[in-house]
């Protein structure tokens, strides 16, 4: 790992400098994570008086539990929905801004601020707009004969949380797509235009392939966002309901551990999530390494 050719010589100072970060890391990150791993192999009795070592039983129970399998399925649908919607809209908007000469900065300012709105806040706003009795969208939907009720219909609830979660993420994706588009040399597109390629052809054969590093990076970031940072969206709106139809994995961990107080199962779920984060981080960093090389 790189450092400076010359370094300061001091016996205690570097340790003092790095100590605060390490203390917080060890006490609030490493120790609890280790606890979660250990507890995932243990079972606590009903009164919390004794714990017994049960091996992989918590994991076996987890993957035999229809609620957990449902949560896995819901998470996949939710993650794909949020990623597709926020990436698709952001790419469309970035392509449009890329054509603008004078108004690009104005449009950018108008499009980036939702990043600053808390997921819980945007959740409550969408919850309000879709309120089955007084909301504006159910009112419009009733006119075309659709009875919207996210309190009863699982699909409606899923659409609601996907909309709320995507709304927050569009500005982030938009900024990275704009940066990606600007880094594509104009000469390539001009050359293609001289050779007679129209805008659509240029998009598919030049812009989209050259944008693929950005797209891939955003794909990973959006997976992480949808799987881990949307707890607030779910908790502030549907709370996993109706009947578990929006019960994503992070919400289930919280619910089983904190509300249901099922320590063993919650820890096993934490460990599964931990492996997902590790996998996504490794993919992300492998990509960064590759990008640096060319």
């Amino acid at each position: 790992m790189s450092t400076k050719r010359n370094t300061f010589r001091h016996r205690t100072l570097p340790y003092l400098l790095i100590a605060p970060q390490l203390v917080v890391t060890l006490v609030f990150f490493m120790w609890p994570a280790a606890q979660a791993v250990i507890q995932s192999f243990q079972q606590e009795d009903a009164f919390g008086l004794s714990t017994t070592w049960v091996g992989f039983q918590n994991y076996q129970a987890l993957f035999a539990d229809p609620d957990y399998l449902n949560a896995l399925k819901v998470t996949v649908v939710f993650t794909l929905g949020v990623t597709a919607m926020s990436l698709g809209l952001a790419l469309l908007l970035a392509l449009a801004v890329d054509r603008m000469v004078k108004s690009a900065t104005v449009y950018t300012t108008l499009l980036v601020w939702p990043y600053a709105v808390a997921p819980a806040v945007s959740g409550v706003m969408w919850w309000f707009m879709f309120n089955p009795t007084i909301g504006i969208f159910p009112y419009l939907l009733r006119m075309v004969g659709y009875d919207w009720n996210h309190g009863l219909h699982g699909t409606d609830a899923m659409i609601l949380v996907v909309l709320a979660a995507s709304w927050n993420q569009i500005s982030y994706n938009f900024l990275f797509f704009v940066a990606g588009l600007q880094s594509i040399p104009a000469s390539l597109r001009e050359a293609a235009a001289i050779d007679g390629a129209g805008p659509a052809k240029r998009f598919w054969t030049i812009t989209l392939p050259l944008l693929s590093p950005t797209t891939f990076f955003l794909l990973v970031v959006n997976f992480v966002y949808a799987m881990f940072n949307t707890f607030a969206t779910i908790h502030a709106t549907t709370q996993g309901g109706p009947a578990g139809s929006t019960n994503i994995l992070v919400y289930k961990v919280f619910n089983d551990g904190f509300i249901g107080l099922n320590l063993g199962s919650s820890s096993a779920q934490s460990v599964v999530l931990l492996f997902i984060v590790i996998a996504l981080t490794v993919v992300q960093f492998a990509w960064v390494e590759r990008r640096v090389q060319y």
Binding site: P14, L22, A33, F228, G257, S270, L274
Partner: peptide, 27 residues
């Protein structure tokens, strides 16, 4: 600085990237 344990410290900090609150709520 170059000091013994520098790499370990670096990796310990790196690993926190993989431990969001969501995966270690209760502990």
């Amino acid at each position: 600085f170059r000091f013994p344990g520098r790499m370990i410290a670096f990796w310990l900090i790196f690993v926190t990237l993989m431990l969001p609150v969501e995966v270690r709520i209760l502990p």
